[in-house]
Computed example of a mutant assay.
Amino acid sequence: MIKVTITQNGELLDTIEFDADNVIASAGGLRVVFRDAMQDCPANGLWHRVTHAAGTVAGRRYLRGADKPHDAVIDGPLSILDEAPDLPPDHRDDIEQDPGARADNDLYHLDRDPDETDEEYRERCKMLGCDESGHIRLPRRRPVACLVPCIICGRPLEDDSAGNNQPVRGLAFQCGGHWPSAVFDAAPGWLEINICEPCLQRAAGRQLVLHGDRASRSLPAIYKLWQWPKRSKDHLP
C-alpha cells in the first residue's frame, strides 16, 4: 500500500492510499474507496501510479472540499425516481413464458467427426449408448435451491450452478459497500441479493431500474432507464 499525504502551507488537505487495485482517499473524517481504479493505470512507474490515483480522486469529485459536480449531473438521473409510481409488487403476478424457451439441458447430441462415415457414426453412437441420430438423454440433475429467495416477493429460486448463486429466471446482485453508507463498506467480501424475473419486470415497467455505464473508471457513470427486453420467438434459445 502506497500512502500520499497532500499539504498546503503546512495544512493537511488530503491523504490518498492505493495499491495495485484500489484507491482509498481520506479528507477529514471522510473515507472513500474507489475499487479497481488502478487497473486502468497506463504505466507501472511510481509517479505514474501516484498521478493516476490522484486523478481518480479529483475526477470523481466525491471528497469534502473538492469542487462539486454540476447539479444537473446528479439531479438528472435521480429525478426519474420521483416520477415512478409507488405501487407495491403483487406476489401473485407472474410472467408468461414460452415453455420451449428454456433449453433442454439433459438432452445430449454426439457430434460427428469430419471424416466419419455414416456406418462409423452409427457404430460409435451404439457404443456410447446414443440412438442412431446421435441423441442420448442424460440423467436429469436434482434441482438445488438458492440460499436466499427473491428479496422482493420471497419466491424461492433454483440455483443453476448448485452453490454459486446463479438464480434460474432471476438475477443476483452484489455490493462491496460504498460511501456514504456506514452499514457495509470496505469490509471483507460482499453483500448479495436475488431478484426474480417477475419482480424485475414489474420494477422496470414502473421505471425503477437504471442501466449504468461509464467509458472508464475515472469518469462519472452515465445512467438511463432500463427496459425489459422484448424477445421474439425467432430469438428464443
Rank of each mutant, 00 (worst) to 15 (best):
C41D: 04
V23P: 00
C125H: 03
R60C: 08
V50D: 04
C41E: 03
R122S: 05
L87D: 12
S218K: 06
I152A: 09
C175T: 15
R92Q: 12
E116N: 04
A221Y: 07
G76H: 07
I222K: 11
S161Q: 04
P42I: 10
L210R: 08
C175S: 15
A66F: 05
L13A: 08
P143F: 08
I6W: 03
E132W: 04
L191D: 06
L63E: 02
Q166E: 08
A204P: 02
A37D: 04
G154P: 04
T15W: 00
H135L: 14
P188D: 15
D234Y: 05
I193C: 06
R112V: 09
G129F: 10
R122M: 05
D159E: 06
G170L: 03
P237R: 14
D93K: 14
H70W: 03
C125V: 03
E116G: 06
A54C: 15
R217A: 09
C130W: 03
L208N: 05
V148M: 11
R64L: 09
S232A: 12
C199R: 01
I193M: 06
A145Y: 02
G134R: 08
H211S: 10
E17Q: 12
S216G: 07
A186F: 12
D93A: 14
G177S: 07
T51G: 15
C150N: 02
K3R: 15
P143A: 06
Q39Y: 08
R124Y: 03
M38G: 09
F34V: 02
D106T: 05
I152K: 07
L157E: 09
P237Q: 13
Q97C: 11
I24H: 03
P85R: 05
E96M: 11
E96P: 04
D71R: 12
R112D: 01
D213R: 15
P143H: 07
I80T: 12
D82Q: 10
T7H: 07
F184L: 08
K3T: 15
D40P: 08
A182H: 13
R202C: 07
G55D: 13
K230P: 01
W47N: 14
S216C: 10
R142S: 12
E119H: 04
T15P: 03
L128P: 00
R112L: 06
K233N: 07
P88D: 07
D234E: 13
H135R: 15
D118K: 06
F34M: 07
Q166R: 15
E123N: 03
C125Y: 04
D185L: 14
F184G: 03
L30N: 10
V32C: 10
R122K: 12
H109M: 09
K224T: 04
A187W: 13
G28P: 02
Q39G: 15
N9C: 10
C146K: 04
C196N: 02
V33C: 07
A101H: 09
L87Q: 13
A187C: 15
D118C: 01
L157N: 05
I151P: 00
Q166I: 11
R49G: 01
N165A: 10
T51Q: 15
I80N: 02
R92P: 00
H211Y: 10
H235P: 00
L110V: 05
D115M: 07
L63G: 00
R49D: 00
T117P: 01
V57S: 01
F173G: 06
D67M: 12
C130L: 00
P77Q: 04
I195G: 05
N9R: 09
A54F: 08
